[in-house]
């Protein structure tokens, strides 16, 4: 187990996140969100292979395949987490989460297939609810 000294109180980290949200809305006029960036990414990938498909789909007109504030925000989450994990000594390559291992054993393929399917269903729902 990682040392508990590395862990910040969720109340403190949450409150600090609240301040970051306020500053973001104030300075950049941007609210936190992530799922739109997955639509943009899908559109960018598809426009490489089939640009006529992308221009024919109404949703890709509404959510244009381009890199914007949110896309870099989402990329920043990866970087920020990497910095925190590396400097705090909590970075760990892991193919199967601990709870999964406890229930289903060391089954990375099963985990990968479930994660992919879950991700696809989750994103379809997130876009439908406009979250």
């Amino acid at each position: 187990m990682e040392s508990s000294k590395q862990q910040w109180s969720p109340y403190l980290a949450g409150a600090l996140t609240g301040i970051v949200i306020i500053l973001s809305v104030w300075i950049a006029g941007q609210y936190f969100g992530a799922s739109t960036s997955f639509v943009r990414t899908a559109g960018i990938i598809e426009s490489v292979f089939a640009p006529e498909t992308v221009s024919g789909l109404e949703y890709y007109q509404r959510v244009a395949p381009r890199l914007d504030w949110q896309w870099f925000f989402v990329a920043g989450i990866l970087l920020g987490s990497l910095i925190a994990a590396k400097t705090g000594g909590t970075f760990r390559w892991q193919a199967v989460p601990d709870m999964w291992r406890g229930r289903f054993g060391n089954t990375p393929v099963k985990r990968g297939v479930t994660a992919f399917a879950g991700g696809a269903v989750l994103m379809f729902g997130a876009r439908m609810a406009d979250g």
């Binding site: 910040w8 600090l16 936190f32």
Partner: peptide, 9 residues
């Protein structure tokens, strides 16, 4: 900043 805080929590 957000990613850093999420990781620490």
């Amino acid at each position: 900043l957000f990613g850093f805080l999420l990781q620490k929590a």
